[in-house]
């Protein structure tokens, strides 16, 4: 009888330990999936006429003043959007040239060296036809540029940057 009670006691303790461990593990996974990404999209017109770089996009000047952009002499910020995307969700927005774009926060990754990276998917549709579909992994806070779409007399340049505020 006493031996049976002891075995039952051990069984209860093991069950509790497994339950606590599973809860901790589940909590850890849930924390990773709850990351929100704050992203900014700068939509820029590149024109051949002289005009320099819009002061509002000074942070992109080093990239816009070197190849392959040197044929364009002025860069004007047309619109800037900032939004927060939850994990595995998509933010849709309209580009100045009428195309529809969407940015999906696919995954958040933490490298062993502590650097945060985000896997993102960018899709652009023109007249209901998908013209660009790319998935990339970007350093948190880093910038990736997409350029080449026509807009008026110039070129459309998109600058994407995302961060994990609570990462």
């Amino acid at each position: 009888m006493r031996g049976s009670a002891v075995r039952q006691g051990r069984s209860v303790r093991w069950s509790m330990m497994i339950a606590v461990g599973a809860g901790l593990l589940a909590g850890g996974v849930a924390r990773a999936d709850n990351h929100l990404a704050t992203c900014s999209v700068r939509m820029i017109d590149a024109l051949h006429e002289p005009g320099g770089v819009d002061p509002r996009i000074t942070v992109l000047r080093p990239y816009l003043e070197q190849p392959p952009f040197t044929a364009w002499k002025s860069f004007r910020l047309v619109e800037e959007k900032t939004f927060t995307i939850a994990h595995e969700t998509t933010e849709k927005f309209t580009l100045p040239n009428g195309s529809q774009a969407s940015l999906t926060f696919v995954e958040h990754m933490l490298r062993p060296d502590g650097k945060h990276r985000l896997r993102l998917r960018l899709e652009i549709e023109k007249r209901a036809q998908k013209v660009l579909d790319t998935t990339f992994v970007l350093d948190e806070g880093g910038v990736v540029l997409q350029a080449g779409q026509k807009h008026g007399k110039g070129l459309l340049v998109l600058g994407f940057s995302c961060a994990i505020p609570n990462g």
Partner: peptide, 18 residues
């Protein structure tokens, strides 16, 4: 300062060259 490391994992285009 943030770094701009970016790895393109997939890239599909239609009606254009990327």
């Amino acid at each position: 300062h943030p770094t701009n490391g970016c790895d393109i994992e997939s890239l599909e285009v239609a009606g254009a060259v990327a």
